[in-house]
């Protein structure tokens, strides 16, 4: 693997994973869903993890979010080890690392209004002397929504696109350093998808945010990211700048994957 990509002594490195491994089950039947994955993310960088279903990309996302226990390996946020954080420390971690998920319907508690959803997340900010209400409004405006119109709405009163934008606002409210977007646009229509991707794209410049974008769609990876990581059977098989990985892939698997992607135009 690309050893040179993983030097955590770079000042700009926000997040570094080293040898991350997750096994499900015990002994002989154990499945290595994520197998020795190492990479580093710089400030303001958008990295896409691509892979087919079962490649372990979503498991990786849930490990980074600390929603799944890590079997082995370490991760560091701004140079601090966060692999085994608990309690208050974990809450502080979640203030800096947030997520948007795939399904804009099941991500909402249907009994909560938008205001209550955001307020609940806002509890992570209770030690950080901020005006929650203005944070909430600012975050909604950042994703192009009018706070007065949506704050008292319930999820069933919002469209899929609106819901997904509110989910992004919820994450942004914490002013995180790292945003994990796990197939965050997969269930949206093409026309809306572009809008959401642009929101992520602009945040990188405006808010110094790093984004780990997880998708099976190489087209989206190509549009959005600075760097692309390719996963196969839990392993990272290719890691490099988008232009290199997508237009000049080195690994067999990446080449095959790209050859199968349907195109709109014949490539010259």
């Amino acid at each position: 693997m690309n050893e040179n990509m993983n030097k955590p002594n770079d000042d700009d490195i926000v997040f570094a994973a080293s040898g991350l491994t997750k096994t499900f089950g015990r002994s002989e039947k154990a499945i290595r869903a994520v197998d020795d994955v190492s990479f580093a993310m710089r400030r303001g960088e958008i990295i896409t993890v691509v892979g087919e279903s079962g490649s372990g990309k979503s498991t990786l996302a849930r490990m980074i979010l600390r929603l799944l226990p890590i079997t082995s390996g370490t991760m560091a946020l701004n140079g601090t080890d966060v692999t085994r954080l608990r309690g208050r420390g974990l809450q502080e971690y979640w203030r800096q690392v947030q997520a948007v998920f795939q399904d804009p319907f099941s991500a909402f508690n249907q009994f909560f209004s938008v205001r209550r959803l955001l307020h609940r997340s806002g509890k992570l900010l209770r030690h950080a002397d901020v005006d929650l209400d203005s944070r909430m409004r600012a975050a909604l405006e950042q994703v192009g929504m009018h706070p007065a119109e949506v704050l008292d709405k319930y999820p069933h009163e919002l469209s899929g696109g609106q819901r997904q934008r509110i989910m992004i606002a919820r994450a942004l409210m914490m002013e995180p350093k790292l945003l994990i977007a796990d197939e965050a646009t997969s269930m949206l229509d093409a026309s809306l998808r572009a809008t959401i991707l642009n929101v992520l794209f602009d945040l990188r410049a405006d808010a110094d945010l790093s984004v780990l974008f997880i998708t099976h769609d190489i087209g989206q990876a190509c549009y959005l990211s600075d760097r692309v990581l390719v996963m196969q059977h839990g392993k990272l098989v290719e890691n490099g700048p988008t232009e290199d990985v997508i237009f000049n892939p080195k690994h067999d698997y990446t080449q095959r994957l790209l050859a199968d992607v349907p195109r709109l135009h014949d490539v010259g």
Partner: peptide
Amino acid sequence: TREHLDIARLSGA
């Protein structure tokens, strides 16, 4: 399995 539980955990609940 619903994602809103992950959201709740990420919100520190």
